[in-house]
């Protein structure tokens, strides 16, 4: 895809804004429509756009297989880890209000934000993994 100057230029312009929008959706999920899942999908779409325009090898240079695996596992670990942190704090599993973060209401708010981040990271990681593994051509195909 060396000759596609227009798509490369447009992608280079758009991708930062798409990623910023994904972060906005993640941060805004508590006040309006949105949340971790949608944010992860949008962030993954931005990375997929990059890979489509610049090629799989260039994309792999930016996000290696190991990095992708670590990212999506990290997302689930954040979610489950917050649940275990609630157990340590003396509450039930995923009872965010038990976390020692000021008032129970603030703790619940931050806990929900934390798991949204976890969901977002996991979804973005899984989306780019599925794209990388299905779009790649094997040598023996």
């Amino acid at each position: 895809m060396k000759e596609h100057v227009v798509s490369k230029t447009v992608a280079r312009l758009l991708i930062p804004f798409i990623q910023l929008y994904a972060l906005y959706v993640l941060a805004h999920g508590e006040n309006g429509p949105g949340g971790g899942f949608q944010a992860g999908v949008i962030f993954g779409a931005a990375l997929i756009l990059y890979v489509i325009c610049f090629g799989i090898d260039e994309g792999r240079r930016r996000i290696s297989e190991q990095a992708g695996d670590v990212i999506k596992s990290l997302g689930i670990l954040i979610y489950a880890g917050i649940g275990i942190a609630c157990l340590w704090a003396g509450g039930a599993y995923l009872e965010y209000a038990a976390l020692p973060l000021g008032s129970p209401k603030l703790a619940s708010h931050l806990g929900i934000f934390g798991i949204e981040i976890g969901v977002g990271i996991a979804v973005a990681g899984v989306m780019i993994t599925i794209f990388f593994e299905t779009a790649r051509k094997d040598e023996d195909d």
Binding site: E30, N31, Y96, K105, L106
Partner: peptide, 10 residues
Amino acid sequence: KETGVINLVT
């Protein structure tokens, strides 16, 4: 009151 989150869906 219980979760501190405005969006009911979230």
